[in-house]
Design a protein around this nucleic acid. Sequence first.
DNA 1: TGAGTATAGTTCAATATCGCACCAGAATGA
DNA 2: TCATTCTGGTGCGATATTGAACTATACTCA
Lengths: 160, 160
Amino acid sequence: MPEPDTAVFFEVFNEIGIIEQLSRTILEARMPAGLIAPHFTVLNHLTRVGDGQTPIDMARAFQVPKTSMTHTLKGLEQHGLIETRPNPDDGRSKQVWLTDKGRALRSDIIASLGPDFQFLSEHFDTAKLSEIRPVLTALRIFLDENRHMVGKTMSIETTS
Amino acid sequence: MPEPDTAVFFEVFNEIGIIEQLSRTILEARMPAGLIAPHFTVLNHLTRVGDGQTPIDMARAFQVPKTSMTHTLKGLEQHGLIETRPNPDDGRSKQVWLTDKGRALRSDIIASLGPDFQFLSEHFDTAKLSEIRPVLTALRIFLDENRHMVGKTMSIETTS
DNA sequence: TGAGTATAGTTCAATATCGCACCAGAATGA
DNA sequence: TCATTCTGGTGCGATATTGAACTATACTCA
């Protein structure tokens, strides 16, 4: 036990890793065959922050390499859930737009998660979750802003 | 906004997904080439709960499919970080043991994360993390125990 | 304005994840 | 005890993830 102070990070990251695994499985169980969590994440993001995002913006938002975003978008496009158009402001870039089918699918998935979340909220104190949410958000923002300060000056290639 | 009450799950899972991504990147930046987060997770688990676990036990502990565990263990064994021996109590099964090299690597990785966590703890209120940790633990346990209640009666194959 | 540099996106290859099918050994129960 | 069922583990194939290298466009600044 070298650092009593920093051990919390270890514990918290550990729990978060397992919760991520479990929650992803719940989500994917409600998604159509051929689509997985990252696809939903994109549909959801475009709905919330608005259409017309560029792939690189979304790669940064989710902290995934841009090659992963390329792959995810390809899958969404093949399923007719998004459309891409050239970015009028930048010839290198694309903009991503939801199709009606994409919007509908997002709604359907959220609706089908309703019973799951209903069950969860009946058996787990959602007030606790409301309490921790701001801390998680702060932690996410902090890690995001300082990702070049930890882990070896993280590879430039990773996202930018 | 269909369900005001269950939306917290959505938000919390969303934050957790991004934090998982970021923290995994930090960890992997401190790991030797050819090894990734799941390898560390196993080394750490074996150190904490003790040697001699079976692969299926660990697959359940981390909520990953058993085929994924097979793959992860294969990598660890090739690197000489673990050894597997037949389980004397069950002819179908194996037991997994840490080698000295495996123990040493875990220590080294944790040590090399020291400065990262040091930085984090200097700039982020660890008291907040201590506060949310029990809630995360409770959530993890709850999701784990009820994973057959949500997401379609999750595939039996997934882990068992 | 042109040379050098930076950035968005893709292709490619290596590895990871995971469902399916299968095998071998264990547990159950008539 | 032996037929049936269950369980731990692996091989395999399809898909996902990601770093490296590359192309095309944009930016910078002398």
